[in-house]
Design a protein around this nucleic acid. Structure first.
Length: 235
DNA sequence: GCGACAG
DNA sequence: ATCTTGTCGC
C-alpha cells in the first residue's frame, strides 16, 4: 500500500505516466469473499479553495445501516483536470481511510472506475493503493459509448470502448438521468452493478455515496467554509 | 479545426 | 464541485 501524499507536486505529465504504471496491476474479477459491509466516499470543497473535506461512511450490507464514519481535511494545489481527478482527491480520501478504525469489505467512490481513457478512474486508483475492492459510481459520463437505457426501473445499457465493455449506464430512478457504474478494482462489472442496484433506496444516487456527500458537506460547513465568495474586485 | 471533458 | 429561487412535470 503506497502513499499518495506526493501527488501534490506531480505535473499532469507525471500523473499520466503514473497511471500508465498503475494500470498494469488492475484486476477486474469476481469478488468471492462475502460482502458484509460496504462504504461510500466523497469529497467536498469550495470553488477556488485549496481545502478538501473527505469523508467515508460505512454500512452493514445488504441492510445498509450506518455503523461507522471517518473524515479528514486536507490541502491540495493539484487542479481539477478531466482524467486526472484522482491526483486531486485521493490524498484527502486516503487520510480519511486511515482514520477509519474498521475497514469495509467494499468501497464505492464518486467517479469512474475503469470507464476511463487509461482505465484509471478514481475508484480504480484508490482500490490499487489500498487493495480494497472498489466500485465507481458517477453522475456523468467520462468515457465509453452507450445507448440511452430505457426509462424503466433499473434499465441497463452497456458502455463500450471499441469492443471492450468498460461499464454500465444504469437507470437508478425513472425520469432521471442514468448513473454510470464501472468496477474499480478486485470486482467484476456484473457484480458492481448488482451491488449498486442493492444500494439504490428511492433516489438516483446510491445510498453510500449519498450519505458520504451529506457527511462531507456537513463538516465543510462546520469548519466555516460554507459561503466563501469570489474574491471581490476591490478587497 | 471542432466537440468532449468524472469532481 | 459550489452557489441559488423559482418553476415545470409527474
Amino acid at each position: 500500500m503506497e502513499d499518495p501524499s506526493g501527488y501534490e507536486h506531480f505535473t499532469p505529465a507525471d500523473a499520466i505516466a503514473h497511471q500508465q504504471e498503475l494500470r498494469k496491476q488492475i484486476s477486474i474479477k469476481e469478488l468471492t469473499s462475502p460482502i458484509r459491509t460496504i462504504a461510500g466516499a466523497d469529497v467536498s470543497f469550495n470553488k477556488n479553495s485549496e481545502v478538501l473535506y473527505a469523508g467515508i461512511v460505512v454500512f452493514t450490507y445488504p441492510e445498509l445501516k450506518i455503523i461507522s464514519t471517518a473524515t479528514a481535511i486536507a490541502h491540495t494545489t493539484f487542479p481539477y483536470i478531466s482524467g486526472l481527478l484522482a491526483f486531486r482527491e485521493v490524498p484527502a480520501l486516503f487520510n480519511a481511510w486511515n482514520n477509519l478504525v474498521i475497514k469495509p469489505d467494499l468501497l464505492v467512490l464518486d467517479g469512474q472506475g475503469i470507464a476511463h481513457e487509461r482505465r484509471m478512474g478514481i475508484a480504480t486508483h484508490f482500490g490499487l493503493i489500498t487493495t480494497i475492492p472498489t466500485i465507481g459510481s458517477a453522475k456523468s459520463r467520462l468515457y465509453g459509448n452507450f445507448n440511452e437505457p430505457a426509462d424503466k426501473p433499473f434499465a441497463e445499457s452497456p458502455m463500450y470502448h471499441n469492443n471492450e465493455q468498460v461499464g454500465v449506464a444504469l437507470r437508478s430512478k425513472v425520469r432521471c438521468n442514468p448513473i454510470y457504474i464501472s468496477p474499480g478494482h478486485n470486482i467484476s462489472i456484473r457484480q458492481s452493478v448488482d451491488v449498486i442496484r442493492n444500494c439504490i433506496r428511492g433516489y438516483r444516487i446510491p445510498e453510500p455515496t449519498r450519505q458520504a456527500h451529506f457527511l462531507v458537506n456537513k463538516i465543510r460547513i462546520e469548519h466555516g467554509d460554507g459561503t466563501a465568495k469570489q474574491p471581490g474586485l476591490f478587497d
